[in-house]
Design a protein around this nucleic acid. Structure first.
Length: 269
DNA sequence: CTGGTGATC
DNA sequence: GATCACCAG
């Protein structure tokens, strides 16, 4: 065998090897995560996971969530948005699927049909564009909440884009998002999916040396106010939702950061 | 980017 | 039900 042929054979073997490995990974994902919702998560993910008020945490490949059966949606969705996750690859939008990992039964997408409300992503599809699987995984019904289109495509979208900006600038952020599932709420569909009156987003950056947090609380309506007008302390969101956001942080650091509603460490430019 | 709807097979 | 074309903020 001459040298040229040898290189050719080696190249083929590498391609087949990578293909086989990806197949292996996708099989593993199917059996463990999508169907069973078992606890496969990164250490970072585990460290920053909030508490669940409903005792139903489900882990997917690209995000974890706590499902509230009564309100037929997640009380929080949490994921790490790494700088390396940011991608300009476009994927075709899939159909929403009922999340089989929710043991009490996740809401059907039919509840949203002709409801007048968007199927608003909690973990945005735009944050999971680095692979088709990660992107498609955001189209599970456990990852959506009814949102007014003007809100979703307006100030909420602006906030989501700002999060991507911060992920790029600060080399990744950890994100927790949800609707405030309290008080009187409108419902949609036969399963009575609650329409939150407020949405929140909590961010922590623990990888640029100094740990920093920022939290947003927004009324469920579009606004032309600047984003920083919606900054609140993490404590305020914990008080509203009953969720403890970063229980595994060292207590004195947690107390100090969660009490602050300062946004001086976060660039709004 | 964030989304929806109507026609078609 | 799946797809494609077309629509809006």
């Amino acid at each position: 065998m001459n040298k040229r042929t040898l290189y050719y054979v080696v190249a083929i073997l590498i391609v087949l090897g990578v293909y086989g490995y990806e197949r292996f990974l996708s099989e593993e994902e199917k059996s463990e995560v999508v169907e069973e919702g078992k606890a496969t998560k990164s250490d970072t993910n585990e460290y920053f996971l909030p508490t669940s008020t409903t005792n139903q945490i489900v882990h997917h490949e690209g995000y974890s969530l706590s499902y509230n059966e009564k309100h037929e949606q997640a009380e929080w969705v949490a994921y790490e948005l790494k700088k390396a996750h940011l991608s300009s690859v476009n994927h075709k939008r899939p159909y929403f699927e009922i999340d089989k990992a929710i043991k009490t039964g996740a809401a059907s997408w039919r509840n949203y049909k002709n409801s007048g409300y968007d199927r608003g992503h909690l973990c945005p599809a735009g944050d999971r564009r680095f692979s088709k699987d990660a992107h498609d995984e955001t189209f599970l019904t456990s990852n959506i909440s009814p949102q007014e289109h003007q809100f979703n495509s307006g100030i909420w979208n602006t906030l989501e884009q700002k999060v991507r900006y911060w992920a790029r600038k600060y080399d990744g952020v950890f994100v927790v998002t949800g609707g405030v599932l309290k008080g009187h709420m409108k419902t949609i569909g036969t399963e009575e999916v609650s329409v939150p009156n407020q949405f929140y987003k909590v961010l922590i950056d623990n990888n640029t040396g100094k740990t920093k947090m920022i939290a947003f609380l927004m009324p469920h309506k579009d606004s032309r106010k600047p984003l920083y007008d919606f900054v609140v302390s993490v404590d305020e969101i914990e008080k509203l939702t009953g969720i403890d956001f970063f229980p595994e942080l060292e207590d004195s650091l947690e107390n100090k950061l969660e009490a602050s509603s300062s946004y001086k460490d976060w660039s709004f430019n």
